[in-house]
Simulated scan of single mutants.
Amino acid sequence: MQLEQSDNFTTSFSNITTPTPEGGRGGCPPVGIQLEGVILPPVLIIDIILGLLGNIVALWIFCFKLKAWNPNTLFLFNLVIADFVVLVSLPLRIDALLRGHWVFGDVLCRLNLFMMFSNRSASIALMTVVAIYRYFKVVHPHHRFNRMTKCQAVYVSLFVWLLVISPRVPMLAYSHIKGSGSSTQCFFFTSYKEASRAIIILVGMHRILTVLEFIIPLAMLLFCSIRIFSFLKERQMGKADKVRKAMQVCVAIVAVFMVCFLPTTVTTIGVWVIRSYRPWDCSAFYTFTQLTIVSLGLNFLNSALDPIVYVFSSSMFRKALCSTLPRALRCGHDTDNDKESSSGSQTTQQELKSLRTDRSSEAL
């Protein structure tokens, strides 16, 4: 397989190219990747199926089952939108992998790359906002941040979208189509020799963003998780259930974050270091290239795993989900509530108790 054909998909996601000769040193031969058309299509198809199932259910609950929205719900709803953006873009990539070339033209190529890269940034940013919101609710309950209105939450969401999309907008200004006919491919560049200076700068920005948008939010997520855990342990001794529920949110977010985004970050740094300091180390370059192929599928698995974050992050969402399930599959306390509803006075008391519990749990 020629370099243009073998590296097209890997290059489009993580900008990997075979090292070119630098300072008289010979570069590596073409990688000749054969696995991209074998591994990625089934992995991406699974991501799409699971992502659509989970996010369609989530969207239905947000739109038709939740009667009251709060800032946390709005942030989670924006996360659903970010997931749908990438789920719409992935089928085009699957088609290109199966065909062996790109058939959708220059405009869709630019939009496709833009949506895929923007999704990663938006998902990371919105999950971080959800964790920070939970942190203030638990650790600083009297902070004015907790008095945020739904309108203010909308402004925060718009700011987040603007923040993550702005660095990706330059991608729309350049054509990423290479070749013609049955050899047409949609990706950033083939090699530094063929790339313009603008594209090289764009790729450098992408690599920097890939690393920074993982390290900085991860530090914030870990800080929020540790502070929430220590605060609840100190202030609410004996109330292990509240500690557990509050920590579930942060643990779920950190788990999704690490599983989906850590591999891509590590392989991006690895390829970057090898190309910059060890361009003659072809064995290491090939190893990181293969690992990058595997990490691509995990990178978009977040769209399938995000519904887990919705369940742990919002008690209103969780209760709405449970209420839609068949009685045999409902959450334990919901089933108990149904049994207790036989008595009128008991029902009234239970409803009042549930309302207080909802408000208390939502604060956590």
Score class of each variant (00 low, 15 high):
residue 1 M to V: 00
residue 7 D to V: 04
residue 9 F to K: 00
residue 10 T to V: 10
residue 14 S to F: 06
residue 18 T to S: 12
residue 18 T to H: 07
residue 19 P to R: 08
residue 21 P to M: 14
residue 22 E to T: 15
residue 23 G to A: 09
residue 23 G to Y: 08
residue 26 G to L: 14
residue 26 G to E: 14
residue 28 C to V: 06
residue 32 G to K: 02
residue 32 G to I: 01
residue 33 I to M: 02
residue 34 Q to V: 05
residue 41 P to A: 04
residue 47 D to Q: 09
residue 49 I to Y: 03
residue 50 L to G: 14
residue 50 L to F: 15
residue 51 G to I: 10
residue 65 K to L: 12
residue 67 K to V: 14
residue 70 N to Q: 15
residue 78 N to K: 04
residue 85 V to A: 12
residue 90 L to K: 03
residue 95 D to T: 08
residue 96 A to N: 07
residue 97 L to F: 01
residue 99 R to D: 06
residue 102 W to I: 07
residue 104 F to T: 04
residue 106 D to C: 02
residue 120 R to G: 14
residue 121 S to W: 03
residue 122 A to Y: 01
residue 126 L to T: 14
residue 128 T to I: 04
residue 132 I to T: 11
residue 133 Y to R: 07
residue 137 K to N: 15
residue 143 H to R: 04
residue 143 H to F: 03
residue 146 N to W: 10
residue 150 K to V: 12
residue 152 Q to R: 12
residue 155 Y to C: 12
residue 156 V to G: 00
residue 160 V to M: 04
residue 162 L to S: 11
residue 164 V to A: 00
residue 171 M to L: 09
residue 174 Y to F: 12
residue 180 S to D: 07
residue 182 S to Q: 05
residue 186 C to E: 06
residue 186 C to N: 05
residue 187 F to T: 14
residue 188 F to D: 14
residue 189 F to S: 14
residue 192 Y to D: 15
residue 200 I to M: 07
residue 201 I to F: 08
residue 210 T to D: 11
residue 211 V to Q: 03
residue 212 L to Y: 11
residue 227 R to Y: 04
residue 227 R to L: 05
residue 228 I to D: 05
residue 229 F to H: 12
residue 229 F to V: 06
residue 235 R to C: 12
residue 236 Q to K: 13
residue 245 K to C: 02
residue 245 K to W: 09
residue 246 A to I: 04
residue 247 M to T: 05
residue 247 M to F: 04
residue 253 I to G: 06
residue 253 I to R: 04
residue 255 A to H: 04
residue 258 M to F: 09
residue 259 V to G: 01
residue 259 V to Q: 01
residue 265 T to R: 02
residue 269 I to H: 01
residue 270 G to A: 05
residue 270 G to H: 01
residue 274 I to C: 07
residue 279 P to V: 13
residue 280 W to F: 07
residue 285 F to D: 03
residue 287 T to Q: 01
residue 293 I to Y: 00
residue 293 I to P: 07
residue 293 I to E: 06
residue 296 L to C: 00
residue 299 N to E: 13
residue 302 N to P: 01
residue 305 L to T: 15
residue 311 V to A: 11
residue 312 F to C: 14
residue 314 S to E: 08
residue 314 S to C: 07
residue 316 M to T: 13
residue 324 T to L: 15
residue 328 A to T: 10
residue 330 R to Y: 07
residue 335 T to R: 06
residue 336 D to N: 12
residue 340 E to G: 07
residue 343 S to D: 14
residue 346 Q to D: 01
residue 358 D to F: 07
residue 362 E to A: 10
residue 362 E to N: 08
residue 362 E to P: 02
